[in-house]
Amino acid sequence: MKNILITGATGNVGFEVIRFLTKINSSNHIIAGVRSLSKAKNVFKEFSNIAFTHFDFEDVNTFDDALNGIDSVFLLRPPHISDIETYFKPLILKIKEKHVNQIVFLSVQGVEKSKVIPHYKIEQLILDHGLDYSFLRPSYFMQNLTTTLINDIKTKREIILPAGEAKFNWIDVQNIAEVAAIILDKFDVFKNQAIELTGLENKNFANVTNLINNIIAEPISYKNVNPIKFYRIKKREGMVSGMIIVMVLLHFLPRFQKEPKISDFYERLTGKKPTDLKTFITRERALFEPK
């Protein structure tokens, strides 16, 4: 039996990882690392076999207790945290000090070619400290449409990005979480590997906008802007600078890169096809409607 700490437990990915771990029905003990215990207990009220611990990426004082007795950590980067030296280095040092030797880190596809993005720096921290790892490198989340981009969709009926005509590979967070749960459960099989995880479709934002418009009642449009204008728009809206810069890097750099490679890892591991965009948009249709 392993004690598995899930960081970002109440977020989209963390919640789904816990859901799939409970479906595996293994003997592992799942601990949700959360900032608010009361909120988390409400989020997971239908899950009876989960423990909770206070964990906050921005509070180093929570690391020690949260990592006591932990064997494996599912680690992700909260979108608003871009200062890796300040927030992740102390965490990796504490993980090493606590002899936690299994890290499944949610990275990003193509990280090895983009040394300026935070995920690369986190991978390097893990490697530099000699920890056993599995780097899960998924492509572009379908759920970005229903989280990071949803306010513009609902209020402006636009997707506003500096992405041009760049093609992104689209993957459902549920597919990512299912793979992460399997890797956490059978870590030794995937130890010290970097695993690319993709869906089956490479599409640009104009393509995706058309797909959405074929399903919803009130259409949206895609507005391509240059990075400086994007920065100014988001700064006026109150988004923190670090998150804006990461969004620029993730959406602008692909304009100068080759079309994403498609991996069959999900299908080989699960025996199923990954979710396609039409299925995802239909499933989340209500979220795309205006306020």
Rank of each mutant, 00 (worst) to 15 (best):
M142T: 04
I30S: 07
S82I: 08
P118H: 01
Q102W: 11
Y87A: 01
K113A: 13
E16A: 06
P79A: 06
S27A: 15
L37C: 05
P118V: 08
S139G: 05
Q102Y: 11
L136P: 10
F88R: 01
I6T: 06
V43R: 04
E16C: 02
H29E: 14
F88N: 04
G8T: 00
L127A: 04
P90Q: 06
E123Y: 00
P118C: 02
I81K: 00
E16L: 09
K45N: 08
D83Y: 04
F105I: 00
G33A: 08
E97D: 14
K45P: 02
E97N: 13
Q143I: 05
L91M: 01
I117W: 03
Y133P: 07
E85N: 10
R137T: 00
K39V: 07
N61L: 07
E112Q: 10
I30M: 03
Y120H: 03
D83V: 03
I84D: 06
H54D: 12
D65S: 14
G11S: 07
D132H: 14
L106Q: 05
D56A: 03
G69N: 15
A9H: 03
A9E: 09
S134C: 15
N68L: 11
I122E: 08
P138H: 03
V108L: 02
I70W: 10
I50H: 09
I30W: 10
H54M: 10
L127F: 02
D65R: 14
Q102N: 15
N49C: 11
M142C: 00
S48H: 14
D83F: 02
H99R: 15
Q143F: 01
V73P: 02
E112T: 07
N42I: 07
K39E: 10
A51M: 12
V34E: 05
D65I: 12
T10Q: 07
G110S: 04
I24M: 11
V73T: 09
S72C: 14
T62I: 03
H29I: 10
M142W: 07
H99D: 14
D71F: 11
T86I: 06
K41P: 04
K121H: 09
T146D: 00
R19L: 04
V108K: 00
F88L: 06
T53N: 12
D132E: 14
H29D: 13
Y120V: 07
L106E: 00
R35V: 05
F141W: 02
I6P: 05
M142D: 01
L127C: 01
